[in-house]
Design a protein around this nucleic acid. Structure first.
Length: 217
DNA sequence: CGCAGGGAACAAGTTTGTCC
DNA sequence: GGACAAACTTGTTCCCTGCG
């Protein structure tokens, strides 16, 4: 039987382990057990610190092979991922998710990230914030069109101010054309409906006035 | 140049939600 | 209530970038 040889590289490789970090300790205990690197942790007989100290001590005698190198790298990487996700979960401002999107959307995401030299996350975040903004503008636009008796005055320039690239601008043009047609067809109908609504509104107002009078009496 | 670190992809397992 | 899909969790791997 060969005497186990001390491997100084292992010590260096595991220096990132902070024995004072409670979170890291309990994570490590799970990780070590999960990989069957040590017998199961028994909280009645040992502390997490004992367990980890023992593990580190044993690890110093690991043979210097590609596998141990790999395992050490993976362990550190797993911890970094876990910690990052843990912090994300705690965060009030960011949240990590996992979604399935179409290839078309994915290609576009890739293109935008490259164009802006930023991460996918940043692109998605910005896009969705913009979408919120768009929703607000859309509502404003609808209101604008409703108030304006002559909705036809809306033109591409009006919509184009919300966009800054060619493709959306073209879409805006098509959208405006469609809207124009639709409005021309439906204008009379809307006017009729508007008259009806105004009538109804007047009736309700009268009713409210009556009720208010009764309550005040 | 080698290496560490970070972002993302990918894989596999688990939990949660929805529908009948 | 169970079948199935969607969403979430965790770990691993790949790839790129920046630093010494």
């Amino acid at each position: 039987m060969l005497e186990p040889k001390l491997n100084p590289k292992m010590k260096k490789r595991l220096e990132w382990i902070n024995k004072n970090d409670e979170l890291m300790k309990s994570w490590l205990v799970d990780y070590i057990q999960q990989h069957d690197w040590k017998p199961p942790f028994n909280s009645k007989e040992e502390t997490e610190l004992d367990y980890i100290k023992q593990f580190l001590n044993d690890a110093r005698y690991c043979a210097e092979t590609a596998q141990t190198r790999e395992e050490c790298r993976n362990m550190k990487s797993a911890w970094n991922r876990w910690e990052k996700r843990y912090n994300n979960r705690k965060s009030k401002t960011v949240v990590e998710g996992n979604y399935t999107i179409s290839m078309v959307a994915r290609k576009e995401l890739e293109r935008l990230a490259k164009q802006q030299t930023c991460s996918f996350s940043k692109v998605l975040d910005t896009l969705l914030r913009n979408a919120k903004e768009m929703e607000f503008l859309q509502k404003k636009l609808e209101k604008h069109l409703q108030e304006e008796n002559d909705g036809l005055r809306m033109d591409t320039a009006f919509l184009a101010t919300f966009f800054d690239t060619d493709f959306p601008h073209q879409q805006a043009q098509i959208m405006t054309q469609d809207l124009r047609k639709e409005m021309e067809t439906d204008k009379k109908q809307y006017q009729e409906e508007l008259r009806e609504l105004k009538k109804e509104l007047k009736e309700k107002q009268t009713k409210i006035a009556e009720l208010t009078a009764i309550i005040e009496d």
